[in-house]
């Protein structure tokens, strides 16, 4: 069974499973104490308490004490927490940044410091309201009961007012969307008693809890033919995050699925006469937000936004359904008897010259006889 569809076949909200998105991913670090090219797999390998494996920075003897770790998830994820397991004492000041565009731009996610204003020019524990839900907070590093195995967990939605109504909060959906995470250690916890100060940062695990972002239109992510992680899109959607409608499914605008409404993309109704269509917002609004698809290049001599009537010069053959490729028949107006080449699109009646009759205007009406003039082919019998 497909989780994106009910047993009766109707579309329903579906999401990939909750995972540690960092597991097995490569971490780039600016400082390490050991081999330079080990890819720091100890950070994102299986974290076993019985066999703790750590990454450690080089010894830092003087300022600056900056060390950066960058984790690429390779795909947009919606993350709810970042958890860092330290093998050393937790740093005094550190920042977490996120990127939503594969590392091209970065925005701050969270700061920790005993001196928020001095180190990061941020207030300590600023108030988060509905007006600034995308603002990073700065706070003191939380204390751990056991400093030898300290864990720091940053919950991305914690304290943000719309978290209880996440499905209808585009702001928070955007806030927790990431492709890359960067952790910058800026200041270790200083020990004034040390005669020759030397500091280092060490971590055993870097976890990122979240779901592959598919906007409610896929229940899993997979590798595409180029090896890139993409959603396995359903509901007539496509794109790496199921973020647009498939071609020919533009009858209503793309929307994220919600538990109440799968918001699947619907095909345009072109009566089998067009392969392409476009979305028109004006028509969509006029229809009461039901249908906005406009068919393009109607074939088989049809016309209209749904290819639902015959184009000029053709009339509807009512013996066939509109979906039939021969539903429209050429008018066949008489070149002399008819006033033009077009006919009534439903009856096929051509517009006849005076005194001419017949569906195609090919006969003189009763009381008329054929003349020699092509301008007035039928004249009244004297």
């Amino acid at each position: 069974t497909d989780p994106c569809y009910s047993e009766s076949g109707s579309a329903r909200y579906c999401i990939p499973e909750f995972v540690n998105a960092a597991f097995g991913q490569e971490v780039t670090v600016s400082s390490t104490c050991g081999r330079r090219n080990c890819e720091h797999t100890y950070l994102t390998d299986l974290n076993s308490a019985q066999n703790l494996t750590c990454w450690q920075s080089e010894m830092l003897r003087s300022m600056p004490f900056n060390v950066t770790l960058t984790l690429s998830l390779g795909k947009k994820f919606e993350i709810t927490y970042i958890s860092l397991h330290f093998c050393s004492e937790k740093p005094d000041s550190m920042a977490i940044y996120k990127s939503m565009d594969y590392g091209r731009s970065w925005t701050p996610f969270q700061f920790y410091s005993s001196q928020c204003r001095r180190v990061y020019d941020r207030p300590n524990r600023a108030e988060i309201t509905k007006l600034n839900e995308q603002e990073p907070l700065c706070m003191e590093m939380p204390n751990s009961a056991d400093s030898s195995n300290a864990i720091l967990v940053f919950s991305t939605l914690d304290g943000r007012p719309s978290r209880t109504n996440f499905v209808s909060s585009p702001v928070l959906q955007d806030w927790i969307t990431v492709t890359d995470i960067r952790v910058t250690f800026n200041r270790p916890k200083m020990n004034k008693d040390m005669r020759e100060p030397a500091y280092f940062y060490a971590m055993s695990d870097f976890q990122v809890g979240g779901r592959c972002k598919c906007n409610g239109h896929a229940h899993r992510c997979m590798r595409d033919k180029d090896g890139m992680m993409v959603c396995d899109c359903k509901h007539n959607t496509e794109g790496s995050e199921c973020d647009r409608c498939k071609p020919f499914h533009y009858d209503r605008p793309w929307q994220r699925a919600t538990p109440k409404d799968a918001n699947e993309c619907l095909p345009c109704n072109c009566n089998l006469h067009a392969r392409r269509c476009r979305f028109n917002m004006e028509l969509y609004k006029l229809s009461g937000r039901k249908s906005g698809g406009v068919c393009m290049n109607c074939r088989h001599n049809t016309a209209g936004r749904h290819c639902h009537y015959c184009k000029e010069g053709y009339y509807r053959d009512m013996s066939r359904p509109i979906t039939h490729r021969k539903a429209c028949t050429a008018c066949d107006c008489h070149p002399v008897g008819a006033a033009g080449k077009t006919c009534n699109q439903t009856s096929g009646q051509c517009q006849c010259k005076d005194g001419v009759t017949g569906l195609t205007c090919n006969r003189c009406a009763k009381g008329y006889q054929q003349s020699r003039s092509p301008v007035a082919p039928c004249i009244k019998i004297p």
Binding site: V336, G337, G358, N362, R363, K366, Q370, R372, S373, P374
Partner: peptide, 24 residues
């Protein structure tokens, strides 16, 4: 009563050559 169809051969196109259908 079945009305006869227009006989194209009866038309005089002398003054209307530009209107004349190709097949007449």
């Amino acid at each position: 009563e079945v009305l006869p169809t227009l006989d194209m051969a009866l038309f005089d196109w002398t003054d209307y050559e530009d209107m004349r259908p190709e097949d007449s």
